[in-house]
């Protein structure tokens, strides 16, 4: 039986955050010159670069779709991104995450505009600290917009989980490894449409509900940051006002 590790002290988490607090986020758009669109994204100690190419001719040919573009998504961890060197190359875990992330973008990318083409998304993890797939999705979303790919909306993503019996937002590595549950969520903030949802561990129905609520709030925050990063690139006077709020 695993001994319970104390992850919460005096109502604060080990890194001093409250239960509903995000780690600091830093976003930079267009960091790669050769890619059609790119983004550097930091979520706490997670450091991610996303690059988007295309639409361009899809290879291998047999994977082309005559009616719409095919999205290729590669989630990859650098060998130096973890404490123990990660053996380079795709493994079971990263292949699965790539698939999940790709499908998180299915409802937003207007694939039918580019029959037979391929849209390639590369997400490279430079440093990881739990929640890498959510950071990857956030980065990819901005990189896709930067590449000029037509989309219905941006996708924002965050994880919630349970540590020492408490539902908390955005787990870090210590909390993820020693906690009871971890649930990454990707959603379209404007419509609250969930585009990806996974869960590892156990939560009650009530805890799940509370977790969803936390995640929804966080995705709205992340959305505003994503939007601001894109807009300030061409408009230095941006004040963080979203036209949507005036609706």
């Amino acid at each position: 039986m695993k001994e319970e590790i104390e992850l919460i002290k005096d109502g604060k988490r080990l890194d001093g955050r409250g239960f509903d607090e995000l780690r600091p986020i830093k976003i930079e758009v267009g960091v790669l010159k050769r890619a059609d669109g790119s983004c550097y994204f930091e979520l706490g100690d997670n450091k991610v670069i996303a690059a988007v190419y295309g639409p361009r001719e899809m290879h291998p040919r047999h994977a082309q779709d005559a009616k719409m573009a095919v999205v290729k998504f590669r989630y990859n961890m650098a060998p130096f991104s973890t404490n123990d060197r990660k053996r380079p190359g795709p493994d079971r875990r990263s292949v699965e995450i790539s698939k999940v992330c790709r499908e998180a973008f299915n409802p937003v990318i207007m694939r039918e505009l580019y029959p037979k083409m391929g849209i390639e998304v590369y997400v490279e993890l430079l440093q990881s600290d739990a929640g890498t797939r959510t950071a990857g999705i956030n980065a990819a979303s901005i990189a896709l917009a930067d590449a000029g790919i037509p989309m219905k909306d941006l996708v924002s993503s965050i994880a919630v989980g349970k540590i020492n019996g408490e539902v908390v937002l955005d787990l870090n590595a210590a909390e993820d490894n020693n906690g009871e549950a971890d649930m990454p969520i990707a959603m379209i903030a404007r419509t609250n449409t969930i585009t990806a949802l996974q869960m590892d561990g156990r939560m009650t129905q009530e805890e799940f509900g509370r977790g969803m609520k936390l995640a929804r709030g966080a995705c709205h925050q992340i959305y505003e940051l994503q939007r601001a990063a894109l807009v300030t690139r061409y408009n230095q006077n941006y004040e963080g006002k979203n036209k949507r709020e005036e609706e």
Partner: peptide, 12 residues
């Protein structure tokens, strides 16, 4: 001043 928008922004 021109207005920059991102995918999903309400326009009209």
């Amino acid at each position: 001043m021109y207005q920059v928008v991102v995918p999903g922004d309400f326009l009209s």
